[in-house]
């Protein structure tokens, strides 16, 4: 019998895309999907270890008041599980060490990057080495972008994907590495799983195809195992063709292109490599 896919969709403190992310897991046929408020983890009512697919949805953790997901990352690093000496971060690092999957979208990606879960080049998952900061335009924008997957990437979520079209909805999505060396390493290891591209598939260096001014048009990165993945665009916002901005004028399959990310994750968990 195939392994059960147990998805947890984490919410609370300003997260707001949990419903559609859970819906994506449902459409991709996860066996169990729980939307869990972070307080349930902090009170020990739910345990990360009971799941094998962690979904970190978009939103505004603590309003992004100290910079996107900064206060959220601070909570993950310093919050204790009530009634025990355990820290939440220990459970999270155990989840990573067990080779389980984490998908961070938008604010979830910002959280992963600011915690250090991504790209985690040295294998240290709590040291931040890249960031997602204010768009060059200085404004929040909702617009659809083309993305090109890197077929050399170890990312398990983007397998088989060539180009996709998703919306971005953020004010702080510009990917910036700490140094040229870090960037080189990320590129060398093919940790860039998705890049913004033009409709022609050419890598997009300019606004608006590159909506935020990201270095090397980076839209999503993974860690070296490919099991941790974060991206700024929202695949969970394109689960049905009627989500596409031009669905009334283009012939599109009923299923939206966002589903592939979740299907990949779920079939990986069911597969022999997990």
């Amino acid at each position: 019998m195939a392994r059960k896919v147990k998805a947890i969709v984490l919410t609370g403190n300003g997260t707001n895309c949990e419903m559609e992310m859970a819906h994506a897991c449902k459409l991709a046929c996860a066996d169990q999907i729980d939307i869990v408020h972070i307080s349930e983890l902090l009170f020990g009512e739910k345990r990360l270890s009971d799941y094998n697919f962690l979904n970190l949805p978009g939103g505004f953790l603590d309003g992004d008041d100290l910079g996107s997901a900064k206060a959220g990352a601070n909570r993950f690093l310093h919050a204790r599980i009530a009634g025990s000496s355990e820290m939440l971060i220990e459970d999270l690092l155990k989840f990573v060490a067990d080779g389980k999957l984490i998908l961070g979208i938008c604010n979830g990606f910002q959280l992963m990057v600011k915690l250090g879960l991504l790209p985690a080049l040295t294998g240290n998952f709590t040291k931040q080495s890249t960031t997602l900061t204010f768009n060059d335009s200085g404004r929040f924008e909702d617009r659809w972008v083309y993305l090109k997957a890197n077929d050399q990437s170890p990312c398990v979520f983007t397998r088989g994907i060539d180009t996709v079209y998703y919306p971005v909805r953020h004010g702080e999505g510009k990917f910036v590495p700490e140094s040229a060396a870090i960037l080189k390493e990320i590129e060398k290891k093919n940790l860039v799983a998705l890049r913004y591209c033009e409709p022609t598939r050419a890598i997009a260096m300019d606004y608006p195809a590159n909506p935020n001014g990201s270095t090397n048009a980076i839209a999503g990165i993974c860690n070296e195992t490919g099991r941790l993945f974060g991206l700024m665009p929202h695949p969970e916002a394109f689960l049905h063709r009627t989500n596409h901005p031009r669905w009334t004028r283009e012939t599109l399959p009923e299923e939206g292109q966002g589903l592939a990310i979740f299907q990949n994750a779920i079939s990986f968990i069911r597969g022999k490599d997990f």
């Binding site: 895309c17 924008e141 916002a237 031009r246 004028r249």
Partner: peptide
């Protein structure tokens, strides 16, 4: 319009801006 998130919650069908170039 672009500075407002018009598709969070995942159910967007007719957006404020439509057409060949959105």
């Amino acid at each position: 319009v672009r500075q407002y998130d018009h598709e969070v919650q995942g159910g967007s069908v007719i957006k404020p801006m439509v057409g060949v170039q959105n």
